[in-house]
C-alpha cells in the first residue's frame, strides 16, 4: 500500500494530470522521437539550443503517469542547463530510478526529480521513467531515428 503511494507521489500525479511544456516547438533545432514497445508509449522531445544551453524544451505524446510526469519534470529541469549539465543530470536521474544511487552514500541532489525515487522498487517501470530522458539525449545528438527502450 505505502509502496504505491511512494510511487505515485502528489508531484507525479500533478505532472501526469497537467503536464508542463506539453506542446510542439516550431522553433526547435533538435528533436527526437522515443518509443517504449512494452507499453506502446511514444514521446517526442523538442529542444531549442543557443550557445550550448537548452533555452527551451517541450514534449509531445502520451504515456503512463510515470512517463508523462517524468517528461514534464525533465523539460522543466533541463531548461537553462548546458548540454553537459543536462547529460550529467540524466546520469544522476538514471542512478536514482534504478536504485544505483542508494548504493553510494552521495545525496542525489536532484531537487524535484527525487520524487521518482520510488520507481527503483518497480524494475518494470524504470523504462517508463527514463524514456523521455533517453529521447532527450538522442535529441541533443540530433540523431534522426526513433529511440526505443529495448
Amino acid at each position: 500500500m505505502s509502496a504505491i503511494n511512494d510511487l505515485y507521489q502528489e508531484l507525479i500525479r500533478d505532472h501526469s494530470r497537467r503536464p508542463r511544456n506539453h506542446r510542439p516547438l516550431p522553433e526547435a533545432d533538435h528533436s527526437a522521437e522515443g518509443h517504449n514497445p512494452l507499453c506502446g508509449d511514444h514521446v517526442t522531445i523538442h529542444l531549442k539550443l543557443a550557445d550550448g544551453i537548452v533555452r527551451e524544451a517541450t514534449f509531445e505524446g502520451t504515456g503512463c503517469a510515470i512517463s508523462t510526469a517524468s517528461a514534464s519534470l525533465m523539460t522543466e529541469a533541463i531548461k537553462g542547463q548546458t548540454l553537459e549539465q543536462a547529460k550529467a543530470l540524466f546520469r544522476k536521474f538514471h542512478n536514482l530510478v534504478t536504485g544505483e544511487a542508494r548504493e553510494t552514500s552521495d545525496s542525489p541532489n536532484l531537487g524535484k526529480l527525487e520524487v521518482f525515487s520510488g520507481v527503483c522498487q518497480y524494475p518494470m517501470r524504470v523504462k517508463c521513467a527514463t524514456l523521455a530522458w533517453h529521447t532527450m539525449e538522442v535529441a541533443l545528438e540530433n540523431e534522426a531515428q526513433p529511440v526505443t527502450t529495448e
Binding site: 504505491i4 510511487l7 505515485y8 507499453c39 508509449d41 502520451t62 503512463c64 503517469a65 510515470i66 517501470r125
Partner: peptide, 9 residues
C-alpha cells in the same frame, strides 16, 4: 489512466 499504472496499482 494508462493501463500500466492500473496494473501496478
Amino acid at each position: 489512466i494508462h493501463p500500466h499504472d492500473i496494473g501496478t496499482i
